[in-house]
């Protein structure tokens, strides 16, 4: 990894983590119970399923001040709702392509599967993602992306269905 400059070293990124109620939120609970440490930069939000993850939430989070977003869910084939995490995966892949089209580093949005038993694994992954986003530096919204405002919810959703 390239060496970090002073600004990046002082920079504390804010990362929003979306978790599903059944696997990854429980993995985060288990990480706590196992006292696995990870950086305090992540703020977890709970859904019932990663399938609930509207790409609009990710864009709003980035726009609203997050430097990165971590999407988590049950492993493929282990979804509580059978197959909805595959839909999250599809949306994630499409959104990532759009991110680079907007000029964002696609690595700002990452996806990690974690089962309810993988507390330590999730903690490692959170640490990795936070460090990667720290290395990318702050996300300057206002000046870089004047076109952002034009992307309405309806268009975003159409593209991801």
């Amino acid at each position: 990894m390239e060496t970090l400059n002073a600004e990046q070293l002082n920079f504390e990124p804010v990362v929003v983590g979306f978790t599903c109620n059944w696997c990854s939120y429980r993995a985060a609970d288990l990480a706590g119970m196992s006292r696995a440490k990870y950086p305090a930069n992540i703020r977890l939000v709970r859904f019932m399923c990663s399938g609930r993850l509207d790409p609009v939430f990710i864009m709003k989070a980035l726009k609203g001040g997050a430097d990165g977003v971590l999407i988590t869910g049950c492993h493929p084939g282990e979804c509580h709702y059978l197959e909805q995490n595959y839909k999250a995966l599809k949306r994630f892949k499409l959104l990532r392509r759009m991110l680079s089209q907007f000029g964002y580093e696609p690595e700002r949005v990452q996806l990690v599967w974690a089962s309810a038993a993988e507390g330590t694994y999730l903690a490692h992954q959170i640490s990795r993602v936070v460090e990667e986003i720290r290395a990318l530096g702050p996300l300057h919204r206002a000046s870089d992306t004047p076109s952002f405002e034009l992307i309405g919810d309806a268009q975003l959703q159409e593209a991801t269905v």
Binding site: G51, H80, Y81
Partner: peptide, 14 residues
């Protein structure tokens, strides 16, 4: 309905 919410996030008309 099991409440996963996938349809909620997919509906283009909200």
């Amino acid at each position: 309905c099991q409440g996963c919410g996938t349809c909620v996030s997919a509906c283009p008309s909200h």
